[in-house]
Design a protein around this nucleic acid. Structure first.
Lengths: 272, 272
DNA sequence: GCAATAGTGTCTTTAAGACACTATCCC
DNA sequence: GGGATAGTGTCTTAAAGACACTATTGC
């Protein structure tokens, strides 16, 4: 395939307004992590990264982080187009303020879907390519430019109707995708640290599915799926806070697909 | 949400070239159907709709049908933006030349993914929202404007490397999606007619998965999944061409998800 | 009758889930 | 020792697949 790099000038040269409509393209991110609830809840809960909008439209409302796809300026001053995933990565780094940290490289990013209903942004025609990000317990966004107004919100606390644009729909689609992927992919390990216990893995499933799982059966099931997890040989330094046996530590295995799958306790009446 | 309809004038008024890059957006269609192979093959085979390109770049090469997302002109002369799915539907109708026919309303259409790698189109920056269409046996494209150069190609015969743009990737993703969806969704019924026999349904699975299935076990399995198919009470007018019992006729049931799922004979080592 | 196609019976193996139990640790 | 957490044994039921069989039709 041709390796042509398109820049703004090239684009303008080839622009014929009768042939097509130039459209603003954005990437929006549904970034999910598992963390302790802000309240004194003992349970770990699923959180999503949201930003408080400062501008119209929807000023003051919560929205998914995101931004325009635009040419990036390299160190030497040249401009080049960025791929969609690249734009999503950039936005996520900006919003979390973790660009300089190393922890962002453990984030799993995948495309969720593209939303282009007319009128979805009252300002103009915008098509948004939504992405889904899965991350181990990330800290609160602090440093960095855009990060000041970003925050982790427990999914259970969100009033979907209050979200800006069509972000309720996008978030709902993202959550459903995440719930479905836990079944047949080793995605849950992306929410855990480099090394984790079976119990921690179970807490991921419980947080995303919102249902308690049977500890014993879960344990055996995970170990029975080839390539899901690998024994590190090590154990946790100590047992639970109030006593208890030390847990074996595992790392993510090579499997990209779980066979057999870990099915949800109550299969939903869903249409996808 | 605001019901603002954006037109070209509005867009130009809000255009700030420093804030974002205006991008041409296209929809590409991976349209799949099951039909008898052109050769004397007895087996029904999976076909995809491709067009022979007449223009540069990739003139003479096969490509997925598609076109630009652009404002549509209503009967009264007003212009409005179209949704992505709407654009896909329009393109599919144009390319198949079946716009006036009634059979297009039985086509299942869903979004596949969005492809925006820089340089994927050598002319300019183009982001393409690929869609996947599943249709019962459709006739060869004949009437209609763009349809002259469109044709159904057996998937097995395609040299992926010869496809235009990044359409090999898109087609491969579409095929994998279709194969996966057969497992847990009643999608196969979208490939069959209004009424169908269990054997016809099995032929769909065999064509998409490319593997023979055990007729007896398949039969029992399909009937055991609640809501997958509904008995019409009728049977085929006659048995097979060379004798044989008449088959019961079924129609698609209400289930949107198959529980339990129909798993593929050989689960692939896939990374999704 | 015979070949062909539709549909069923039955058995084995695997997996899911309920439940009880053992193992190890902190205090 | 006692409570807490990790991990295992065992039984029941559901489901997948192999295989053989019965049922009905065209010729």
């Amino acid at each position: 395939m041709a390796d042509t790099v398109t820049n703004e000038r090239d684009w303008l040269a080839s622009y014929d307004p009768r042939a097509y409509e130039p459209i603003a393209v954005t990437v929006d991110i549904v970034a999910l992590t598992i963390r302790q609830g802000a309240d004194g809840d003992a349970e770990k809960a699923l959180h999503v990264l949201l930003v408080r909008r400062g501008e119209m439209p929807f000023a003051g409302r919560l929205a998914l982080p995101g931004g325009f796809v635009r040419p990036v300026v390299e160190a030497d001053g040249t401009r080049r187009d960025e791929d969609l995933g690249e734009a999503a990565e950039r936005e996520l780094a900006e919003e979390t303020g973790l660009a300089t940290g190393t922890r962002l490289d453990r984030v799993h990013l995948e495309q969720l879907g593209t939303y282009g209903a007319p009128g979805r942004d009252p300002r103009m025609r915008i098509v948004s390519v939504a992405h889904l990000a899965f991350a181990p317990d990330l800290p609160d966004p602090t440093a960095g430019g855009d990060a000041a107004h970003a925050l982790w919100v427990p999914v259970a606390d969100i009033d979907f109707r209050s979200l800006a644009f069509d972000h309720a729909r996008i978030l709902a689609d993202g959550l459903e995708r995440a719930r479905a992927k836990l079944e047949y992919s080793p995605l849950a390990t992306a929410f855990a640290g480099e090394e984790f216990t079976i119990t921690e893995l179970r807490e991921v499933y419980q947080a995303v599915w919102g249902e308690p799982m049977h500890a014993g059966n879960f344990h055996r099931k995970v170990l029975s799926v080839p390539g899901f997890v690998e024994d590190t040989g090590a154990t946790t330094a100590r047992g639970g806070a109030r006593g208890g046996r030390r847990a074996r530590l595992y790392r993510a295995g090579p499997a990209r697909l779980l066979h057999p799958a870990l099915l949800r306790p109550s299969p939903e009446e869903d249409s996808r």
